[in-house]
């Protein structure tokens, strides 16, 4: 039994890693293409991120003179590895029918673990930034830490609200498969529905901060601090960060889906056609579509339509505005339990 699990973990991890890297880059390509079209540009082909990675892999990897060597080289690896590990725990549509508990390691971790794992790529980038020994990277690392502290709070509020709502049903409420199995929309009344919408809004605002995109990309602000954290990185190290960014974006979108849209399309389609063995494929494609929609609304459209904020503004947006929004959603969910307004 233990041996089976070991083999499955090893080979499954490799499979999930390839899968995550591939789709991370595909979504990056789609994002760039859509933004280009919104700006009336032709834009790069969708395979461009793959070409970028290949090119970076062939470039020289420079180690700055006053960098802390081992930390500087370790950071990209840790960043990528922890991003991939995220995918081992988050259930994905279609694949949740393959694995026993929704994800490869579904039964072994819960949403608290995922929350911590989400921080590790950022922490690795901070470590790498401080280790680069460049003033720009140092400023970037400080900004990344501040951003991290800012968005963690509203994110935690959203997750606690959902988990708390589930706790009335009982069971291991922190387990991701339980959250995915009991979508929040199914168990709420009118007030709760509004509350859930507000929580979704808060999570959508947290997403660009979590994946460091405009308007919250202060840590990597190109025109301000010359890509900040990544200022000194080049060649293979930069490619690893680039890949990690793609994977983390994909994982974050998957998390949004688990929390709010864990529906599969196969039960609906089953009524019209017999899917048979194609169920997994259909659900998986539907999942990819959901990821695309989440990224479209939380990253691509926001990125194309806003300017970058200052770091103080990022903090006040997250700590005051978004946190208040999220807390209001939580309160609405609580009220929903207390006074059953029901459906008029």
């Amino acid at each position: 039994m233990t041996g089976d699990l070991l083999i499955m973990t090893v080979f499954g991890s490799i499979g999930i890693a390839i899968f995550g890297l591939f789709f991370g880059l595909v979504y990056k390509g789609i994002d760039r293409k859509i933004v280009a079209h919104m700006q009336k540009r032709v834009g790069p082909p969708i395979r461009q991120p793959f070409l970028d990675v290949i090119k970076l892999m062939n470039k020289e990897t420079v180690l700055p003179e006053n960098a802390v060597g081992w930390m500087y080289s370790m950071a990209p690896l840790v960043c990528l590895a922890s991003s991939i590990i995220l995918l081992l725990y988050i259930p994905m549509g279609g694949l949740d029918q393959v694995f026993e508990n929704g994800a490869l390691l579904g039964g072994h971790g819960d949403i608290i673990l995922v929350l911590y794992l989400l921080i590790i790529p950022s922490l690795a980038m901070v470590a790498g930034g401080f280790a680069s020994g460049s003033p720009f990277a140092t400023v970037g690392a400080q900004r990344e830490m501040v951003t991290m502290m800012s968005y963690e709070f509203p994110l935690a509020v959203v997750i606690i609200a959902i988990v708390w709502k589930l706790s009335t049903a009982g069971g291991d409420v922190f387990s991701l498969s339980l959250i995915a199995g009991n979508p929040i929309w199914n168990s709420v009344g009118l007030l709760g529905l509004i509350g859930a919408f507000i929580l979704l809004l808060a999570l959508v605002i947290v997403t660009p901060g979590e994946v460091a995109k405009i308007p919250f990309d202060v840590a990597e602000a190109e025109t301000e601090i010359a890509h900040g954290l990544l200022a000194e990185y080049s060649g293979r190290n930069l490619a690893l960060f680039y890949l990690a960014d793609g994977v983390k974006t994909f994982a974050m979108a998957s998390l949004v889906i688990v929390l709010f849209f864990p529906y599969n399309i196969s039960p609906v389609l089953e009524q019209y056609v017999a899917l048979g063995d194609f169920t997994i494929l259909v659900d998986f494609l539907f999942f990819l579509l959901k990821v695309f929609l989440v990224l479209l609304f939380s990253v691509t459209l926001v990125r194309a339509g806003m300017a970058r904020l200052r770091i103080t503004q990022v903090v006040s947006v997250y700590w005051i505005t978004v946190t208040l929004i999220a807390l209001f959603g939580l309160v609405l969910l609580m009220w929903d339990n207390q006074f059953d307004v029901g459906w008029f």
């Binding site: 009336k40 540009r41 990309d217 190109e222 025109t223 339509g305 806003m306 300017a307 970058r308």
Partner: peptide
């Protein structure tokens, strides 16, 4: 300001 859409417009 990081507002590239406006730049292109």
């Amino acid at each position: 300001l990081g507002f590239d859409s406006l730049l292109h417009y």
